[in-house]
Every structure is written in structure tokens, then in C-alpha cells.
Design a protein around this nucleic acid. Structure first.
Lengths: 209, 209, 209, 209
DNA sequence: AATGAATGAGAGTTCATTCAT
DNA sequence: AATGAATGAACTCTCATTCAT
């Protein structure tokens, strides 16, 4: 019982931290990094400004932590799908795609912000924070590369460099996200879209071959 | 003689405008939209701050005009490639890709900025300026869609919605640009990358199928 | 027994109070008044923030009390030296100087802070707290004035206003402290310096006269 | 005539810069460095905040520049007095003291701020700015040291290290400034005070010796 | 007409003090 | 009684835009 006492506080701390991150995400998604002010995060989260600075060292940190938090969740989902050794490489690639789809559907706001960050030319974050996120990103891509490498080795995929295959694959996922990011189509069925894209990607555009 | 005088002035005006846009692009590409100050554009272009405001209503307008200017050039190249009616749909899609590749190689800075803008969640621009750019973008995608529609109709491409095919195609282009945007690989042969990607996309990833 | 209980508490209270003051001094000496935060004092003293506010009304009070505490100790040493009636005025002035030297050597940190305070133009403290410290300072100078007055009366010192003599004397002490305050010479033998200064001050710079 | 045109602008710039420095000095003298806000300097100088940042990079720079500006003037006065080679060392030391006195009387506010800075324990300024001021200070002390060295060499002063003599001398000047710094005596005749102090310092406190 | 110095609203961040636990 | 998380006013500094010259 007593050993749970510190845990209560800890849980409280974590809960508040996540509440702030959630509020921050919603503001970032709506206004972008530069369009978001600390005052807005404070207002959205209903935590006073000073309190927010108790949980994070600044705006950069909030952004970084929010991205890492969501990114790690996504990474877990993908890693999980990729580790189902009973499946063939192709099936695993598909499973990853579906894991992605599920996450994307449930974290639309985050995806918008993440893509915005990844493709931004602005040096939004301090180098070390940026490096953190890049590492996470690379780890995610590496999962795909591994799958494709195995597929190539087994003769299931065409003999291209695995990095190229995974890059292309990643591009497809990206193009699926695009409608959200650009705001052109607020709601559309990402799962069926990725489904079709996957089929196309495996069989190819052209009929004859 | 007299009727040429205004033309000279006009040309002079246009030249200066483009000089400013070129300077702005180089600063935007290096610093991002928010990292760029009007003073920097003034310095880079060697035009006084006040003068710049004679040519553009503000920072937003400069960004908008610069993007439109480059975008229209790219659109022309693609439209040109797409209009070579002597080629098959597949060949035309390939020609468009190569037109893209050429432009991308020669306008690396713009591409970085463009992608940054396109995928940015930030409300960088006023709605009407943004709509302008979106229209241009849609026109570009429409060219691809048209090609794919024809390919599907002719039975050359698999019977998927043409929009899906062009979206996917666009995703591939995107994945080719990525290394520049993310700064991971400063120099690499984009043409051969797109070449291989095209082959993959037409034949598909998988061997047997 | 019972009458000692409150005394124990009292002693405990005093001990803690002094522990906080000591910690505060070390932080003030390193960081200056404005550079010091209450959190740092809390950390250095290992007393919780809330507890510190039980002992002092605020940052100002801590500073004031710390200065007074050390100042009173110095005042006692000087008064003691000054009260050795068996000595001549000159010898007593010398004794005071040496008492000063000893204290200065053992309370370098305090001296830095004190000088900083005394010569600061900043309205660090509320008027009443400042007045307190000024009174203490004046009392210290008064001891010197008394000695010099007696020396003048006895014909041992030149017939100048005693206040002038003690001011000058004080200036010399100050110039001895300077190297510490300004940080130019971390370690040097203050006693021998004051020794020579005293000799110079009594005999004068010039040879012939 | 035309070559004076840029000079007009330059003079205007300089005039404004000095106006700001003057306003800053008066606020610093009253409130101290930390007690002074940029808004107050803006208000006192009647220049808008943004304008002040056109002339100075920040609060630190203003302080540094103001101190350097006044300090250099003082340095010039002292150097001038010290360079009167027709005078004996003692006479030159006296001349320096009087130069000091004159400056001090006319720049009471600066002196308060300067002493406050010199004896402050706070790291008010960035290291390089601080070093600048320290160098200036050292140059000033060096002038005295030179005089005393010559006096010792000529047998006019007692054979003590010249640095000690100038330190002591400096202490005397300090003790003269004290009443202003501590605010104890707003108005008093600093010249006659330094006069008497000088006499005392040359002859010594004691009668017989 | 051409300029660039002047402007000031608004940004991120700190920290002495309080008070619910 | 003892604590330290919570608070928000106040700070320094930036920069798109204007307008007197």
C-alpha cells in the first residue's frame, strides 16, 4: 500500500503532463508551431503558464515531447506488426501499413503536425531535439527496410536495394496522409486507400507485365 | 520609340520583381518562412526595404508570388511533356517524371520551400493566397490524372480510379524529393532514382505476381 | 526539565535559521542578490522552500538578516579591539585593522556581498531594512572616529576632523578588500597588505615631510 | 559642403545615441541595473522601445556603452593631468586627483553607477563586455602606478611597491566617492575633501613621524 | 519616387510567494 | 506543522510595416 503512495503522485504528474501535451497537440495542429503561443497552450490545457513551465522547459520541449510521445506509440504498433514472424514479408509489410492506417485515423492531428515538422525547412527545434526525432524516424524506416531485405532475399520481392523499396513504400504512406495535411479531404477512408495502394504497389500499374 | 519606353520600364519592373523573388527564394530555402525577415530579403536582393514594398504588399505576397512563379514554370514543363500525343500513356507518365526530375534538380531550393509549404500545417498565408497555390497544385495533379485515365481507358493501366493512380505517382515523386527536404542526402542522382522508382511502380514490388 | 524543553526548541530554531543564512550567504556570494533565487537557497540549505518562509518573510529579509548577523560579529571584534584602553590611539587603530583583517580573511564571501550591497545603487532592500544596515555601518565607523578623536585630542594625530580621518581609514580598508570583490586577485595576504597600508597611512607617502 | 552631408546624419545618430545613454544613466543611477527596465529607459529618453534596440543590442550593451563612454572621458582627463611633465610626481598625483574631483562633481550619477558595477558581485555583464570595462579600469590605475613609480625612483615617495601606493590612492578616491554612493551626503565639497585627504596621505596621520 | 529609420504590439520565459495537502 | 507544486505579473527583445524625408 505504502509503496503505491509515490506512484499516485507520479501518475498525477504524468496525467497532467499528458494533458498539456494533448492540449498542445490540438493547438499545434490547428495553428502550426509558429502560430501557436504559449498562452494558447495554457488556455487550451487550462493550466496556468507558470505550471506548464514546471513540466516543460519551453515551447520547443513541448513540441519535441509531444512528437516523441506519439511517435513512439506509432513505432510500437509498427514494430509489433513487423515482428509477426508467422507472416511472409509481403504480409508483414501489409500488416505494418494497416497498423499505420489505424494509428493515422486515430491521430489525425498529430500526423498533420508530424508531417509538417518532417518536411519543414525551418529549423524549428534545437539540434539535439531534432536529432532525437530523426533517430526515431530512422528507426521506423529501418523496420520497413528489414522487411523488404528479407523479401528480396527470399526472392519474394524484386531484387532492388531494400532502402529504395522502403523509401518508395514510405512515399506511398505519405501520399495517403497528404489529403489530411493539405486539408483537401477532411474525411476519407484511409484504410481502403492504403489497401488499394498496396495492391497497386505489389502488382504494378501496368497490365501486361 | 515612345511606345517602347513603357515597355522598357515594364521589363525593368519585371526584372526587378524577379530579382527580389529570386533573393527571397534563396533566403526562404535556407531559413524557412518564419526564420526569414524582410530585412534579410532586402539585403539578399540588394533592394531597399521600402522598394520591396513597392513591388509586393508584404511578406506573404512575396512568398505567394515566388511559389506561383516557380510553380507555373514547373506546370509548363509537365504540361508540355504530357501533351506529346505521339507517346503512349506510360511513356507520357515517364516523360512527365523526367520533366519533374529536371526541374527538381535545377530548383532544389524551391522544392524544399514548396514541400515545406505544402505540408505545413501553419497558416502561413492568407486564405485567398493559399487557395491560389492549391489551385495550381490541383492543376498539376490533374495532368497526371488525365494521363492515367487515358491509360486505364486504353487498357494499358490496371482499372483503378485515375485519381488513386496519380496520387500514388505523386507519392513517388515526393519520396524522391524527401532526401533534399530532410537534408539527409544533399546530392544524389534524382533522375536515376526516379527511373528505378518508375520501373518498380509499373511492374510492382513482387516477383511472381 | 520542562523549562529546558522550550530552550531546546529555541536552540534548534536558531540553529536552522543560521544554517539557512549560511547557505544563503554562499549563494549570494557566488551569484549576487539578483542572480540568486529562493529555490537555490532552498537547495543549498537543504531546507524546503516552504520552511524557509517560516523563518524569513522573504528574500529581502534573508539578505538583511544575513548581513546583520555577520556585521554584528565584525562589529564586536572591532569594538573589542577598540576598547583595549591600555593601548595608544594609534595602536588601537592598528588593532582594529588587524581585527578587520582576521575577519575579512575568514569571511571572504560575506565581505564580497557586503561591499556589493554597500556600494550598490540598486534599491535592493526596503527602506527600513536598509536603514538597519546603515545604522550598523555607522556604528562601526563611529568606533574609528572615536579613536581618531582621542588621538587628535592627545596630539598624537594631526589636527583634522576625526570623521575625515576615519573616512580615509575606512577607504584604505576598502581598497584592501577590493581585490577580492573585483575578483582580480583570489588569494593574497590581506594582513601584510593592511600592515603596509597602515604604515604608509601613518607616515605618509612622501619622504621629506 | 557635400562631404558634410553624411556627417549630418552621423551627427544626428550620435546625438540620439548619447541622448539614450544619458537617459539610461539617469535611470540606472536611480534604480540600479536590475531595477531598471527597458521600458523606463524608453520613457525617460522619449525614444520608443524599438528605436532603442536600433542603437543598442540590449540592456547590457546600453550599460556597457554608457560606462565606457563616461569612463573614457574620465580617463582622458586623468591622462591629461598625468602627462604634465613639468610637474613633480607629487604635483601630478595631485593634479590627477583634482581632475578626478572635477569629473566626479559633474558626473555624480555615473560615479554611483560605476562604483556599483565595479564592486558588484553580480555577473551583470557578459564576459567580453566586462573585460572591456576592466581593461579601461586597469588603464586608469596604471596611470597612477606610473606616477608613483617615478616618484619612488626619484626618491620623492617612500620606497613601497608602486602598485600598493596607487591602490591606496585609489582607496582614498573611493572613500571620497562613498558619501554619494551610499547616499549619506548628497551634497558636499568633494574638492576640499580630496584636498585634505591628499595632504593627509602625503604627510601621514601621525604627528611625530 | 525612393528610402530606411522609426514603431510598438506581442512573443517566450522567470521566479518570489502562496496555500492546499 | 511542513511542504513544494502552482501561480501570473513582469521582464527583455523581435520584426512586419509605415511614412517623413
Amino acid at each position: 500500500m505504502t509503496d503505491l503512495a509515490p506512484s499516485r503522485k507520479e501518475r498525477e504528474y504524468k496525467r497532467r503532463r499528458e494533458e498539456i501535451l494533448g492540449a498542445a497537440l490540438s493547438v499545434f495542429a490547428e495553428r502550426g508551431y509558429y502560430g501557436t503561443t504559449m498562452a494558447q497552450i495554457s488556455q487550451q490545457s487550462e493550466y496556468p503558464l507558470g505550471t506548464i513551465y514546471k513540466y516543460f522547459t519551453g515551447k520547443e520541449q513541448i513540441f519535441h515531447d509531444m512528437v516523441m510521445d506519439r511517435g513512439i506509440r506509432l513505432g510500437r504498433l509498427i514494430a509489433e506488426a513487423a515482428s509477426r514472424k508467422e507472416l511472409s514479408p509481403k504480409e508483414r509489410a501489409y500488416a505494418c501499413l494497416m497498423a499505420n492506417a489505424q494509428f493515422l485515423r486515430n491521430n489525425q492531428a498529430f500526423v498533420r503536425v508530424y508531417i509538417s515538422l518532417r518536411s519543414s525547412v525551418d529549423m524549428i527545434l534545437a539540434p539535439d531535439l531534432n536529432a532525437d526525432i530523426n533517430r526515431m524516424h530512422d528507426r521506423m524506416v529501418a523496420v520497413y527496410t528489414e522487411i523488404f531485405q528479407e523479401g528480396v532475399d527470399k526472392g519474394e520481392f524484386r531484387p532492388y536495394p531494400a532502402e529504395d523499396l522502403s523509401s518508395l513504400f514510405y512515399g506511398v504512406i505519405f501520399s495517403a496522409i497528404w489529403p489530411w495535411v493539405s486539408g483537401s479531404r477532411e474525411t476519407y477512408d484511409i484504410e481502403s486507400w492504403l489497401n488499394r495502394s498496396f495492391e497497386l504497389l505489389t502488382k504494378g500499374f501496368c497490365v501486361s507485365e
